[in-house]
Design a protein around this nucleic acid. Structure first.
Lengths: 151, 151
DNA sequence: GTTGGTCGTCAACGTGGTTGTCCAATAACA
DNA sequence: TGTTATTGGACAACCACGTTGACGACCAAC
């Protein structure tokens, strides 16, 4: 396989997973969730986070993180709450609806992976995952894919 | 590996390849080339293409394809030429500079793949590529990554 | 109590998509 | 052949999502 084809197929495989995830999320009552939302929800986590923290975790500016929070809040998946110890900070917390999306995403991703594993074979899947771990030295999530495309 | 981690690592591996490619392209005299440009150049191909054809190949509107051509033309990588048989059509052709970028990209991608192969091992690499071929039923290129993110 | 750093937000901008509209040119057909 | 339908390219307005710069509010430290 050529290097270019390798890159292209890695992206294709990723995209197929994410597309299938969002198709299924839409079918299960969350049609407005987009890829960036899932990443952000995960980055906020159970303990909540401020917009600035979220920006660091996502690898984007605090302003961009703030806009993402706006979108998520408009959909009812997160809420901004006051920090009792610091009036400047606003803690973003995941709502029950947001937790439902996270729970569903995990479940659906597992199902999708199982489907792929059935298609390509258990051994081959294990080898691929091992290779991926080696390939991707994987630091921070960096979901600024849109900005990355135009960098 | 969880399904979510699989998706994430697929993207990470892809992104690492493309980032490294563009770092190297920049070092070799093409700092302004962005990922979308490479895809577009490849889609135009040796025989040239019209903006509308390019849009179909890239999975975007003809207007978006036209803008991409504008950018590529401003960088000197393509040129719009008249179609002698149809005065409406303008054939976009790759210039020598554009061909140089394509040639360099192929070469660099091969080197990057070889590096990865050295890291993960020949056998494991072969298994991963086989798995990727199975995973990604890969029809048309579909490089509308930016649009896809915001869909 | 002033001074400096941090948090969140607003504003302006860039990039790269989208749809809608329009004109010029070609193709199809009565 | 003349009229009508379709096609290719461009323009405009708009949207999504990132950026930087600036600013007010607040906290902390000397």
């Amino acid at each position: 396989m050529s290097g270019a084809e390798l890159a292209f197929r890695l992206f294709g495989a990723f995209r197929s997973l994410v597309d299938d995830l969002h198709d299924e999320l839409a079918r299960r009552g969350h049609p407005a969730v987009r890829p960036a939302h899932g990443f952000a929800l995960q980055a906020i986590g159970a303990r909540g986070a401020t917009a600035t923290e979220l920006g660091v975790r996502l690898g984007v500016s605090k302003q961009a993180a703030g806009k993402t929070v706006d979108g998520l809040a408009a959909l009812g998946y997160v809420e901004r709450t006051a920090d009792p110890t610091d009036a400047r900070r606003k803690i973003v917390v995941v709502t029950p609806a947001g937790r439902e999306v996270l729970r569903l995403s995990v479940e659906i991703f597992e199902r999708l992976r199982a489907e792929r594993e059935r298609d390509v074979g258990v051994t081959r899947m294990r080898e691929m995952e091992a290779a991926l771990r080696g390939l991707d030295s994987a630091g921070a999530p960096r979901v600024d894919a849109s900005a990355w495309l135009s960098s």
